[in-house]
């Protein structure tokens, strides 16, 4: 088996913020009735808890994000996907649900530095000043769908894999030194 490749091979751009493609990162989509008790149990079984509306809850190397009223996104190390999928699938037996490995359908970027938010402010129609702690925001970056959240002095942003080159281009364009929106 060959090593899994991220969409772009992890390029880095240094501007007024640092932009990096990271990954590959494991991702599982889970669609189910989020209030079902069996779901909380299933999540607990893989070390996760149910996030509130529009929140992402990180537990060590894994995280669960609220994507929609019946959809969670589970993030985890790429190699752990089969094991966690199997565990969740077993725990949810008998409950109407959908589980799928979507790791390779996505590209993941980090935008880092004190001005990281200014990069996103050029691309996303989102009031970043009002983004709440731990909020997972789904929106668009210029012409493509994205989801992002603030984490460790920066933002993590997810896009579809096929447009990873476009998103890296957007982030690079927006992080050019000298194009800061605000001084701080």
């Amino acid at each position: 088996m060959s090593e899994p490749q991220s969409a772009l091979g992890n390029p880095v751009f240094e501007g007024f913020a640092t932009v990096r493609e990271i990954g590959p990162i494991g991702m599982i989509t889970l669609r189910a009735t989020l209030s079902a008790p069996v779901l909380a149990k299933a999540l607990a079984g893989v070390g996760l808890a149910l996030p509130a509306q529009r929140r992402i809850l990180r537990q060590g190397a894994r995280a669960a994000g609220w994507m929609s009223s019946d959809e969670l996104l589970i993030l985890l190390p790429h190699s752990e996907v089969p094991e966690v999928l199997a565990s969740l699938s077993k725990a949810l037996q008998g409950e109407h649900h959908l589980l799928a490995d979507i790791s390779d359908a996505r590209a993941v970027f980090r935008i880092e530095g004190v001005k990281a938010g200014q990069v996103l402010a050029k691309l996303c129609p989102v009031d970043l000043d009002r983004l709440e702690p731990g909020e997972l925001r789904r929106s668009r970056a210029a012409q493509v769908a994205c989801a992002f959240w603030a984490e460790d002095d920066g933002f993590t942003l997810i896009s579809f894999r096929s447009v990873a080159g476009y998103v890296m281009g957007l982030l690079t364009h927006s992080a050019q030194t000298g194009s800061e929106l605000y001084s701080a």
Binding site: D104, A142, S162, V163, G165, Y166, G169, L170
Partner: peptide, 11 residues
């Protein structure tokens, strides 16, 4: 230029 529109690329 390159980011005029999102070009989708297969693996």
């Amino acid at each position: 230029g390159e980011i005029f529109q999102p070009l989708r690329r297969t693996p």
